[in-house]
């Protein structure tokens, strides 16, 4: 039941980047348990989190020991996008983050699955799971954006607020063999189409923060990430080697 650890550095870099994205977003979505607006959403967000956790386990196992990587690394060693570490905010924020990320992940895994690289087997499974995550985010974007005035205002604020974290997604990750500019064009087209259908305005601001020298892929994270890690790691660190 174990995957042979690969020592190849390029593969490790790529597996860490994508594995950390999945792990961190999974944890954020798990924070909704007990707090979601309706029971169906609680279940939906937890199920999406579970899919992401499964992907994270496969990817981190390609880079080393999954538990050590998840629970014993410091903030600066994580390679996830700043987008996925952003706090849940209100429900519209979570949906905007889901829309941006699931669209990216769907396009990326479709490309990886079509290739013959070491991540192709995982990508072939993930792309099918992520199609449902994307559908979920898109339906909610349409419902909130094209719904009540309150929903529209909150959804617009959320897509605006997270826009500055979307440029980072297209920084090339070494070893993946992806045409990143083409991926970005496809992402922008799909996002623009969904936002228009939801009667929302495509944000006009910059897609990277001026303060971010590089960003998450270089281990630079936003302030809320440290607090998230503290919560995620404290049990494992307080009781080293504990088992059920």
């Amino acid at each position: 039941m174990t995957t042979t650890p690969a020592r190849d550095t390029v593969l490790t870099t790529a597996a860490l980047a994508l594995g950390d994205d999945a792990l961190v977003l999974s944890h954020r979505l798990g924070e909704w348990a007990g707090h979601a607006p309706v029971l169906e959403e609680e279940v939906a967000l937890a199920n999406i989190a579970l899919d992401l956790l499964g992907q994270a386990r496969v990817l981190l196992s390609l880079a080393g020991d999954e538990d050590e990587l998840a629970f014993l690394r410091e903030e600066r060693a994580f390679r996830n996008l700043q987008l996925v570490e952003q706090p849940n905010g209100n429900f519209a924020h979570t949906i905007a983050r889901q829309l941006y990320f699931s669209t990216y992940q769907h396009l990326l895994h479709a490309e990886l699955a079509a290739g013959d690289g070491p991540l192709a087997p995982l990508a072939g499974k993930a792309v099918k799971e992520v199609a449902y995550h994307h559908d979920h985010a898109e339906q909610w974007t349409l419902r909130l954006g094209d719904g009540t005035a309150t929903g529209h205002t909150r959804m617009q604020r959320a897509v605006d607020a997270l826009w500055r974290y979307t440029g980072e997604m297209f920084q090339p990750v070494e070893g993946l063999g992806i045409d990143w500019p083409a991926l970005e064009t496809a992402w922008l087209e799909r996002i623009t189409q969904v936002l228009h259908r939801a009667t929302l305005t495509v944000p006009a601001g910059p897609r990277t923060g001026a303060w971010a020298a590089g960003a998450g892929r270089q281990g630079l994270h936003t302030e809320p990430f440290g607090r998230m890690l503290a919560e995620m790691q404290h049990l494992h660190r307080s009781h080293p080697g504990a088992t059920w």
Partner: peptide, 29 residues
């Protein structure tokens, strides 16, 4: 369709409009 995700990730929650019973649907993957 009531919810795309039900008791497990592989199922969706639906409701019958004739007999009014809710039921799980094993989603196509």
């Amino acid at each position: 369709l009531l919810s795309r995700f039900s008791s497990t990730a592989c199922k969706a929650l639906r409701r019958c409009l004739d007999c009014r019973e809710p039921f799980d649907h094993f989603k196509e993957l």
